[in-house]
Amino acid sequence: MAYLAAIEETDPIVIDEVLKVCRNDPDKRQWLLQWADRILPAKPIDTLDDRHFCRDCIHLGDERCIRHRFRPVDDLPRRCADFLPKIAR
C-alpha cells in the first residue's frame, strides 16, 4: 500500500487488482515487495536505539571483551554502558 501511495495510485480498481494478484500469487507478491523496497525511501534510523555490536568497541581485543572479560556472541547488538566506538580513539 505504501508503494501504491508513493506512485500516487488512487484508482480503486487498480489497487484492488494489485491486492488480488498479491493475495493469489506468492511469486508476484514477493516481486512487488522487493520492487517496493528498492523504490520507497529508506526507513528512518531509530536514533533512540543505543545498542551496539561489540566488534565496533575499543574494549574488544582477541575476540574477548577486555572490560567485562567474556567472549561475546556478536550476532545481535547489545546495550553496554562501557561501549566506546573504535573510531573515537
Rank of each mutant, 00 (worst) to 15 (best):
N24H: 06
A6D: 11
D50H: 04
R78A: 06
A88W: 10
C22T: 07
D74S: 00
F70Q: 06
P44N: 05
D62C: 03
V73C: 07
N24A: 13
D74Q: 00
A5E: 15
P41G: 02
R23P: 06
A6E: 11
L40E: 00
W31K: 15
D27Q: 13
D27R: 12
L60K: 02
V14M: 06
P77H: 01
R51A: 04
P77C: 03
F83T: 00
A81R: 12
I87K: 13
G61L: 14
K43E: 05
P44G: 07
H59Q: 09
V18S: 03
D49W: 00
W31G: 13
D16W: 05
L48P: 01
I66R: 14
L19C: 05
A81H: 10
C22Y: 03
T47S: 04
D50I: 03
D82H: 13
L4I: 02
R23I: 08
A2D: 15
I87F: 14
E63T: 07
C57F: 01
K43R: 09
R79P: 07
K43P: 03
V14F: 11
A88K: 07
A42Q: 12
D62R: 09
A36S: 08
T10E: 14
D82P: 02
R23C: 10
D50M: 06
A2S: 13
N24K: 10
R78M: 07
H59I: 01
R55Y: 04
L84F: 11
C22L: 07
D11N: 14
D49V: 01
I87P: 05
E17M: 09
R29A: 09
R79Y: 13
I13A: 13
